[in-house]
Design a protein around this nucleic acid. Structure first.
Length: 268
DNA sequence: CCCCATGTTCGACA
DNA sequence: GTGTCGAACATGGG
């Protein structure tokens, strides 16, 4: 579920009504989502603390508390954040619950691939070294081209999923980008023509912008003109060409594309 | 029962 | 060391 825009949405869910004084912390100590955290100090540090602000970068979130404390949240494959009215009824997959006087801020994750940890400092631990966001002016075409060269042997689909360069791109965004740019997901990253590189750069930013606009604030449904609404249905048709979509495993992930539009171009 | 899942990490191998 | 690939992680849903 959570890619760039979904993460932004969930960040906003917990941010509504800031600041929040935390009266009580409920957690599920043995859960795998705390594999990088010290559960006792997490409870101790957050109880009676105040949630002041929130940050999102790619698929990561950081919630800033008084005393330069940061709560890092990664949603993994199935994690979500909820902001529930009282009375709050605990679900078996609620692994961290921050109670305020009137709300329950919940981290819920059925598959336990998410992770939670605490850090202290002016910035969240490790965030000074993050790559530029997709919509940051420092994310440039040159940066993209250099990375495609470095990963030249890998299929372009696999390369777009690499968070070290494309923070926030996940499976559906990668497919959407390649479909819009008319690039076959299996094409080797190093064989893209200059025209394809330009188109790819443009569509990365366009999909990030569009996804944030539609999903980032209110979780709207993407329009049927996107690949998004057609990608999982058997017999789905490409909304641009009307031709059948196909699904293949590329870069280890199920990949949906339109063979009529997305053909491999070999560079001389 | 079988297969699949919007993510990351780790070990094997070239 | 560099880079790629598949399995593993834990659970629910079709």
């Amino acid at each position: 579920m959570p890619e760039l825009a979904e993460v932004e949405f969930f960040k906003n869910v917990w941010s509504k009504g800031l600041p929040h004084r935390i009266t009580r912390v409920e957690l599920n100590p043995g859960c795998r989502v705390f594999r990088k955290a010290e559960v006792a100090s997490l409870r101790e540090t957050l109880t009676q603390n105040v949630l002041l602000r929130s940050l999102a970068h790619g698929k990561q979130m950081a919630f800033g508390f008084k005393g330069r404390v940061w709560l890092h949240v990664h949603l993994g494959m199935a994690g979500r954040l909820l902001n529930l009215p009282l009375p709050y009824l605990r679900d078996k997959h609620d692994h961290l619950v921050l109670h305020t006087a009137r709300r329950a801020l919940v981290f819920r994750d059925t598959r336990h691939f998410g992770n939670i940890l605490l850090s202290r400092g002016e910035q969240p631990l490790g965030w000074e070294a993050l790559p530029p966001a997709l919509l940051d002016p420092r994310f440039t075409r040159d940066l993209l081209v250099a990375f495609l060269q470095r990963r030249r042997q890998a299929p372009i689909k696999a390369v777009l999923l690499m968070q070290e360069r494309f923070p926030g791109i996940g499976n559906w965004m990668a497919d959407e980008i390649l479909w819009r740019a008319r690039i076959h997901p299996g094409q080797k990253a190093g064989t893209l023509t200059a025209r394809q590189q330009g188109k790819l750069f443009q569509e990365i930013r366009a999909v990030a912008e569009d996804a944030l606009a539609v999903i980032g604030t209110h979780w709207g449904d993407p329009p049927d003109s996107w690949l998004f609404n057609h990608r999982w249905r058997d017999g789905g048709l490409c909304p641009k060409s009307g031709k059948p979509l196909v699904r293949e495993t590329i870069g280890g992930r199920t990949t949906c594309f339109s063979p009529a539009l997305q053909r491999i171009k070999e560079v001389p």
